[in-house]
Simulated assay, not measured.
Amino acid sequence: MRAVIVSREEAEKVRQKLLFEGALDKTRRLVKKSGLIEIPVKESFAKEGLTLVEQEEPRFYIPKKTPGDYLDILDIPDSERELLPAGWQILGDIIIVSLHEKLENQKAEIGKALLSLYPGCRTVLLDRGISGQMRQPEREVIAGRSTETIHIENGCSFKIDAMKLMYSKGNLAERKRMSGLGEGETVVDMFAGIGYFSIPMAVHSKPKKIFAIEINPVASGYLKENIKLNRVEDVIEPVEGDCAVVTPHGIADRVIMGYLDAHEYLKHGIRALSPGGIIHYHEAVPEAIERRPVERISAEAEKQGRDAKIINMRRIKKYSPGVWHVVVDARVD
């Protein structure tokens, strides 16, 4: 079985790149050997510049189990066992799970079962969706106590209270993409949250300056903590307030608009750009009118006497039936 062999210092960077490219073999563990690290890759992988070896002693992950494996002692009818969740989210040491309403009376037992699956986790939250303009989660502790955690992703640390704030792991590829942009630039991150885009960009790309704007005081508090946690105080300037009021004008080489219902703020995002700057505009849009974000950017740029050139439009993930989370990259002259 094949593996890429690298130094310990290079290991995480190479692993993240292989993961992003779909070349990482997720069934095997990394192996430390003679001061080097063997990173398992798929058999079809071949790339110049990396040293490939045949692993003598591959180490495999234990196959993933389900709550059903730990619920045999419970009095749950077979018809309800079929309603058990097929998956859940792990954020730091917190498990977040959604349950069918018919299983609500078994939530405490299911929470304990999930903690049995993951000894490194300490709390299980029952997720009931999101509400409000600030997309606040509706959650309940069903096992454990503490809801604050530190989640590690792409070489960055994110402190968050999972009871009060959202963290979408479905946006991982986009966050990784953005972490490779912005070197030497002035960036405005509107709707910055806890630093979902600002932190990876500051850690990996070294922009000149990032103005990270967030109106939610809870999220803003964690944004400030995460800036210190990742030691990027010299790069990120947190700004607490409404993007319609505090977004600066004409200074940005790049603007990030990561909130999915931000079309009313688009004028402020474009106004923040210096000539030739790039905007990354996110929107939840029905398939039938998927070009709507492109049309909105072009129309708003024209209102301001500017010209928008669309660079790219990508689907990030399914938002709801018939609706996609998309992001449009555009250069505005």
Rank of each mutant, 00 (worst) to 15 (best):
I62C: 00
P67R: 09
D69L: 01
D69T: 02
D69C: 03
Y70N: 05
I73K: 14
L74H: 09
D75E: 12
I76E: 03
I76N: 11
P77H: 06
S79H: 12
E80M: 10
E82P: 01
E82Y: 02
L83M: 02
L83K: 15
P85N: 10
G87A: 08
Q89M: 07
Q89G: 00
D93Y: 03
I96C: 04
S98L: 01
S98A: 12
L99F: 08
L99K: 07
E101P: 01
K102N: 10
K102V: 00
L103V: 01
E104P: 02
E104S: 01
E104W: 08
E104D: 03
N105Y: 03
N105L: 00
N105A: 02
Q106T: 00
Q106D: 06
I110G: 10
L114S: 02
L115S: 11
S116F: 07
L117F: 03
L117K: 03
Y118P: 00
C121H: 09
R122H: 15
R122M: 06
R122A: 11
L126G: 08
L126S: 04
D127H: 15
R128Y: 14
M134R: 13
E138T: 10
R139F: 05
I142K: 09
T147C: 08
E148P: 02
T149R: 12
I150K: 04
I150A: 07
H151V: 04
I152D: 15
E153Q: 14
C156N: 12
C156P: 11
S157Q: 13
F158T: 06
D161S: 10
A162R: 14
A162M: 11
L165M: 15
M166H: 06
M166T: 11
S168W: 10
K169V: 10
L172C: 05
R175H: 14
R175T: 12
M178H: 09
S179H: 08
L181C: 04
T186W: 08
V187A: 04
V188A: 08
V188H: 04
F191C: 11
F191W: 10
F191H: 13
A192P: 04
A192F: 05
